[in-house]
Design a protein around this nucleic acid. Structure first.
Lengths: 363, 363
DNA sequence: TTTCTTTGTGTGTGCGAACACACTAAAGAT
DNA sequence: ATCTTTAGTGTGTTCGCACACACAAAGAAA
């Protein structure tokens, strides 16, 4: 082991006490400028690195943070994110980080705001949330900044600067990738559909970026002359409405041969397709939800792109752990990989979810 | 924070001292059977979990382990594994784990044996290596077992039992996946080639498994009537020999339209193809080597399957860290995901390599 | 009985950092 | 002239655990 430099070593060499070195380290002030300079010089010379283990042990404080998440019972996608957060909670709960999950109605921006305001009253020391509702999230970010509460954003990327970090996928690129994957199954002159099964209000720009990526891919690959259409549909919760919509979509576009479902609800489309006369439609969707996996195994979903919702939740909490407890710097932009998932490699991604490590992942 | 149960809490409740609890915890013996039973009962009742942070701090011992790896200058694939090991070394060096990398000639089983024997003399407290040479590796495993030296295997899977854990890909399944990916680019009646650019001695069974997976996929999908051939070629280091070989391969099989290169040397094939009259051959290969990435970006490699060599090295060392320092249980079989990589998602995997975390990954 | 082992148990110290607290000296207030 | 304040610094305790050591009791050998 390279002999580790301790605070005491610095203190000795600089001719001060460990207390002074500590004050320099933590910017607690009350150090004479020349002494501070000397200490810093010695630290630099000896190459001091904080011993995270000893540091974490001695920093014996409780930190309470809040994870404001969509109600997981409303959407299996958010269930996965919640799972990731829960795993992280288990990992860090004994080390001074108390994570309080709070759920809002995924379809209701007002509910998000109400919860957010309530939570701010309780003065958490950090917040984690997906900024699904642009305005409300913007307001919350401002409020947190004003109260000096660090924030971690997941799932939906806003411009950087206001938050400690963003963890999630690169939407634009996921659109490009979706196009590439769908392209494998398309023939000359066929039609591909970008399908937004969502409420417009929620994550609008998010989806726009995916669309842009998708279109840009086909612009850059005009050989097959694929025609691209886009459909937005909000009634996906009602099976009958959904059926009518899909039927009409197919009827209107006889050359339609591929659908890019821009979020995790590809299974909704397949529920409908099954009830209609068979037609060879390639589907590219997102995320390893149970419902999607069934169709993937049945060969009805062509590809799934894994946005790693579990990891988003897990890494989100872990980033705050690093920031607040370990006091390590945090990477402000953490794009998670866009995993291409087919039947033949899905197991390994599912397995990974099962074993996100505890002390294994953060020490 | 859930009030953490400490050793002292157990001691109090069981009416013994912390020293006794400690002896029970670490099986140091010298505890009366009835006392031991009582302590265990209390531990169970209160749900004790060791505080890994305090534990790691107090366990103030130096542990030396050895990583016996192929010479990274001989093969860029092993350079990546070495990179992962190096990153892990940085992460753990201050926490009592001294990792000593030693390199052997990747083409020479004898060299492996010689190094292994030398290393055994130095009595390392654990070993990490890829069992490339079946016999030599088997011998080393036995020797380590005899000396009670735990071993971690990476890259090439042997039957479990002799080692602490295996970290790497599932070879069979990677063959299946390779077939699936190649299948996208093949037409009715074409020929696909399994190409082993390797020395037979090294990793023979490893490659056999890939072949089996590959063949099984096409057996299960006979619709396109793909004919499968296999070629082994050892002269891949000599550009001219290689060219002759590829030329002959193409000439002999006019319907050849896809090549599955079973290791990371797909770029070798492309070097040759470029010098031959153009012919549309789909290539599926392994691993994100610089040379492969160039061809991926140029669209000449159809797909790459990422076997995560960096992670193999990194996680290998980390597993030993967990075992030896943190004394956490280690998952004996750690299949890394088989990432499907195309131009559109490659960046995220490369980025991940750059940011394998330090304390971030193991706490 | 005395002495030596063996077995079982408690005590004490160290790990490195964080932080509360005590203390000093000098400046400022009354 | 005395008291108060404050900047600057050192000391000591704490965190939870690991492990060496001390020590007692009980049994064995003399």
């Amino acid at each position: 082991m390279k002999k580790r430099i301790r605070i005491k070593d610095i203190a000795d060499k600089a001719g001060v006490s460990t207390g002074t070195v500590d004050r320099v380290l933590h910017n607690r002030g009350k150090v004479a400028p020349d002494v501070k300079k000397r200490v810093l010089a010695v630290m630099d010379e000896l190459g001091y690195e904080r011993n995270l283990i000893a540091s974490a042990l001695a920093y014996n404080k409780q930190v309470r943070i809040v994870a404001l998440l969509p109600n997981p019972t409303q959407d299996p996608y958010w269930q996965q994110t919640t799972d990731g957060v829960q795993q992280a909670i288990k990992a860090v709960q004994h080390y001074g980080l108390l994570v309080e999950p709070v759920y809002f109605d995924v379809f209701d921006a007002k509910d998000f705001l109400v919860r957010a305001k309530e939570l701010l009253q309780t003065k958490p020391q950090a917040m984690l949330f997906p900024p699904l509702f642009l305005e409300a999230a913007g307001w919350l970010l401002e409020a947190c900044a004003a109260a000096a509460i660090p924030t971690v954003l997941i799932n939906t990327q806003l411009e950087q600067g206001k938050s400690l970090c963003y963890i999630g996928q690169d939407s634009y690129q996921s659109g490009v990738l979706g196009a590439r994957l769908l392209d494998f199954g398309l023939q000359q002159g066929q039609t591909a559909c970008i399908l937004n099964l969502d409420f417009q209000t929620a994550s609008a720009q998010h989806l726009h970026k995916k669309e842009a990526g998708f279109r840009d891919y086909f612009s850059a690959h005009p050989q097959k002359q694929i025609q691209i259409i886009r459909q937005d549909f909000e009634g996906f919760q009602d099976v009958n409405k959904c059926l009518v919509f899909i039927k009409q979509l197919l009827d209107t576009h006889p050359k339609l041969a591929g659908i890019f479902v821009t979020n995790s609800r590809a299974y909704k489309v397949l529920e409908c397709l099954k009830q209609l006369p068979e037609r060879n439609i390639k589907i590219v969707g997102f995320d390893l939800l149970e419902a999607n996996l069934e169709h993937l195994h049945a060969g009805e979903i062509h590809f799934l792109i894994n946005q790693n919702p579990v990891e988003q939740g897990y890494e989100g909490v872990m980033s705050l752990f690093k920031h607040l407890i370990l006091k390590q710097p945090v990477e402000p932009l953490q794009y998670l990989p866009l995993d291409i998932v087919v039947k033949e490699n899905v197991d390994y991604y599912l397995q990974r979810h099962a074993t996100l490590e505890v002390l294994g992942k953060t020490l």
